Simulated assay, not measured.
Amino acid sequence: MIKGLRTAIYPVTDLTAGKAWYASVFNKAPYFDQPFYVGFEIGGFELGLIPDGTPGATGSKIFWGVEDIDAEVARIVALGAQVHAAVQDVGDGIKVAELLDPSGNVLGLIYNAHFDLQAVR
């Protein structure tokens, strides 16, 4: 039985720079920091960075929950991201945006008032 999202992994071209950038975005230090993998615990889920891969915007899309999507887009763009897809309402009050991190990976953001944190297992 699949129990839900656990880990999103992004390849980066510079692990040290990627680690610093994501630490700024999530305002959190990694809990696991090795030359082959850096892991951040984000709201019960994991964001992993790997140094051996090809960054890009064509792979899987992962969306991280936010309370104020417009404010978070502005904050993360100020940290060096680029807007890949502007904030849009996709229906029923759910809003999404896609940013490109400095390596070119998509960092998806979602505001979804219907998401039930109690259902996370």
Rank of each mutant, 00 (worst) to 15 (best):
M1L: 12
I2P: 07
I2N: 12
L5W: 04
L5Y: 01
L5V: 06
R6W: 08
R6P: 00
T7D: 13
T7C: 08
A8F: 08
A8E: 05
Y10I: 06
Y10C: 13
Y10W: 09
V12E: 03
T13C: 10
T13W: 06
T13M: 08
D14C: 06
D14R: 03
D14W: 04
A17S: 11
A17W: 13
G18K: 06
G18L: 04
G18E: 04
G18D: 02
K19L: 09
K19C: 14
K19I: 07
K19Q: 15
A20Q: 11
Y22N: 06
Y22M: 10
Y22F: 10
A23E: 04
A23W: 06
S24V: 05
S24F: 00
V25S: 01
F26E: 01
F26M: 03
N27P: 03
K28V: 06
K28E: 09
K28R: 12
K28Q: 15
A29S: 13
A29Y: 05
A29P: 07
P30K: 07
P30Q: 11
F32R: 11
F32S: 15
D33L: 05
F36C: 08
G39C: 09
F40V: 00
F40K: 00
E41K: 11
E41G: 01
E41M: 07
E41N: 11
G43F: 05
G43R: 01
G43H: 03
G43I: 01
G44Q: 08
G44P: 01
F45A: 15
F45L: 15
E46I: 02
L47G: 01
G48H: 02
L49P: 12
I50C: 07
I50S: 07
I50H: 03
P51L: 13
P51Y: 10
D52G: 08
G53D: 00
T54E: 09
T54Q: 14
T54V: 12
P55W: 00
P55D: 00
G56W: 04
G56V: 12
G56E: 11
T58I: 11
T58P: 10
G59I: 12
S60Q: 07
K61Q: 15
F63D: 08
F63H: 13
V66G: 02
E67I: 14
D68N: 12
D68A: 10
I69P: 04
I69K: 05
A71C: 14
E72W: 09
E72K: 13
V73Q: 07
A74N: 07
R75Y: 00
R75P: 00
R75N: 01
I76W: 06
V77T: 15
G80Q: 08
G80V: 10
A81T: 04
Q82P: 05
H84W: 12
H84F: 15
H84E: 15
A86K: 09
Q88H: 14
Q88K: 10
G91Y: 00
D92K: 09
G93F: 11
V96G: 01
A97L: 04
A97D: 06
E98A: 09
L100A: 11
D101L: 02
D101F: 02
S103M: 10
G104P: 01
G104Y: 03
G104S: 02
N105I: 03
N105L: 03
N105Y: 04
N105H: 05
V106H: 02
V106E: 07
I110A: 04
Y111M: 14
N112I: 02
A113G: 02
A113D: 09
A113F: 03
A113K: 05
H114Y: 06
F115Q: 11
F115A: 14
L117R: 15
Q118D: 14
A119Q: 02
V120N: 09
R121M: 14
R121A: 15
